[in-house]
Nucleic acid binder design. Structure first.
Lengths: 108, 108
DNA sequence: GTCGAACTTCGATGGCCGTCGTACTATTTC
DNA sequence: GAAATAGTACGACGGCCATCGAAGTTCGAC
């Protein structure tokens, strides 16, 4: 097989204008995903999927991460065998000012 | 049966401090409920359940309204045979500043 | 006090979605 | 290249939830 030059390092995700509020809310409405988003908020430089303690198996993790990514909440870039996820703060703030902060600042 | 003096005019709902972000997000994540919330935002004085055009039957409406009420998103008071719903703007803004505005200002 | 209007309640149903295990792929390391 | 690591893909399964229809309740109007 040819050397397959530089696979996309960033996994497919909606452009800022394509983000739909309904999908974002649905994505954030799950307790596991909310946990992950909160963890991401604490480390802006990106986090590997496995680095966050979550009460689910690997495959379920993958599932949740895809939902968050396809909703436009997080961005994922491949780095070696790992995928580093990070919050799309700028995009979300631009599109729904205050929403993300409102979610993250929630006490419990 | 005794005359059952003065039924509660406001239907049971969580106090401000009891509102949980996860429940709010889940409540707002449904397309029908989001439609209703947007309609409420346009008429702050309260709206009768049946007065909002929604693509579901009466009983489904009741279901959605209860979820919104129990999540702390809306308040309902009985007035005659009708139940007037209104957004709990103050409570939501106090607890999750920016969240509601972020949701309501979403373009589509 | 009957009728109608406005909701609620109570099953029943169907579909989606969160979960898991197993198998697979890609990448680094030895 | 073999092994180990990190994550994805694919089915399968179970439970929850949005939906409905039909029957019940509560209030206002006549």
């Amino acid at each position: 097989m040819p050397p397959t030059v530089a696979q996309h390092t960033v996994l497919p995700q909606p452009a800022r204008e394509e983000i739909r509020i309904e999908q974002v809310l649905q994505a954030l409405g799950d307790p596991v995903r909310l946990l992950f988003v909160r963890a991401l908020a604490r480390s802006p430089e990106g986090v590997a999927c496995g680095a966050v303690p979550l009460p689910v198996t690997k495959s379920t993790r993958t599932h949740h991460l895809r939902i968050l990514r396809e909703a436009g909440v997080i961005s994922m870039r491949a780095e070696g065998t790992r995928r580093l996820s990070s919050l799309r703060r700028e995009d979300l703030d631009a599109r729904y000012p205050g929403l993300l902060d409102g979610v993250l600042n929630a006490s419990h």
